[in-house]
């Protein structure tokens, strides 16, 4: 009995240390916020507040667009990766995970070389009117690239958790592949879709390295935090960061509550 208690006590201490590790920087940030600078940054100073609000809106919009596009690509791609075996599957899966391994500045350079005006597919993109250098779509591309493996891996886990025999039963009941996918697979995948969306959205919001290379302008929150830190100092950078962290926390708590319901 005593042994179990000791065991639980040890676990609790380690778990608490873990929470403390993640919580301390958040508390430190909240403590460091200067209310006057915060008000000035977001409301009273016309120049600063316009920059801050635009950057926040842009970041959220680009991260949302990136996650929606990843979801559209990820649902069929993960389906193929989990439901079918083919030669070279391991290589494809390794390629998908590359953004997890490389420095994000390198990712930015790779994106420029592929989709930039002078990149491999740049001319093709220009025909459709999409230019990624210093544009909204450049930010979205950078966000998509770094969030790609997170969305795919989350959806893959989701597909793997669905018992395939259920899909086979649906087919034997007369449902074709599409009906089976829409009526059986997709509803069961929904929690993973939400999780994948949430995680890739969070990853996209936090991206800075690749965005700095591909699209410095228009400025996202992260780029602006860096710029203000260098130009105006810590106080102003903290005012920006505080709102971003607060916003992310609210979004995560809300979404997790919705998913649980």
């Amino acid at each position: 009995m005593i042994k179990i208690e000791k065991f639980l006590l040890t676990l609790s201490i380690i778990a608490s240390l873990g929470i403390l590790f993640i919580l301390t920087p958040i508390i430190a940030l909240f403590i460091a916020v200067d209310p006057n600078t915060l008000v000035k940054t977001w409301f009273t100073d016309p120049l600063l507040s316009e920059q801050a609000r635009n950057a926040l809106l842009l970041t959220l919009e680009a991260a949302f667009t990136s996650s929606i596009l990843l979801m559209i690509i990820g649902i069929p791609l993960s389906y193929f990766l989990t439901r079918y075996g083919f030669r070279g599957k391991n290589i494809v899966e390794a390629i998908i995970d590359i953004p997890l391994m490389i420095p994000h500045a390198v990712a930015g350079i790779m994106i420029l070389l592929a989709y930039g005006r002078r990149g491999i597919l740049g001319p093709l993109l220009s025909v459709t009117g999409i230019v990624i250098e210093d544009s909204f779509w450049g930010i979205v591309t950078a966000m998509m690239f770094v969030s790609f493996p997170i969305m795919i891996d989350t959806l893959k886990l989701g597909y793997l958790s669905i018992d395939e025999s259920i899909e086979l039963v649906a087919r034997s009941m007369g449902a074709n592949r599409l009906d089976t996918f829409v009526k059986i697979t997709l509803p069961l995948l929904l929690p993973s879709i939400v999780a994948g969306f949430l995680l890739s959205w969070a990853r996209a919001v936090s991206e800075v390295g690749a965005i700095l290379i591909v699209a410095y302008y228009p400025k996202t929150m992260n780029v602006l935090v860096l710029e203000w830190f260098n130009s105006y100092g810590l106080k102003y950078a903290v005012s920006l960061s505080f709102v971003l962290v607060l916003f992310s926390l609210i979004v995560f708590i809300l979404l997790k509550t919705v998913v649980k319901k």
Binding site: I166, L168, V169, A170, R171, S172, M173, A175
Partner: peptide
């Protein structure tokens, strides 16, 4: 394809749609 055969399968774990 399975949907055109009219053969209804009941797997070991019954395969109910959860």
């Amino acid at each position: 394809p399975p949907e055109k055969r009219g053969f209804a399968i009941i797997p070991q774990d019954f395969g109910l749609f959860p």
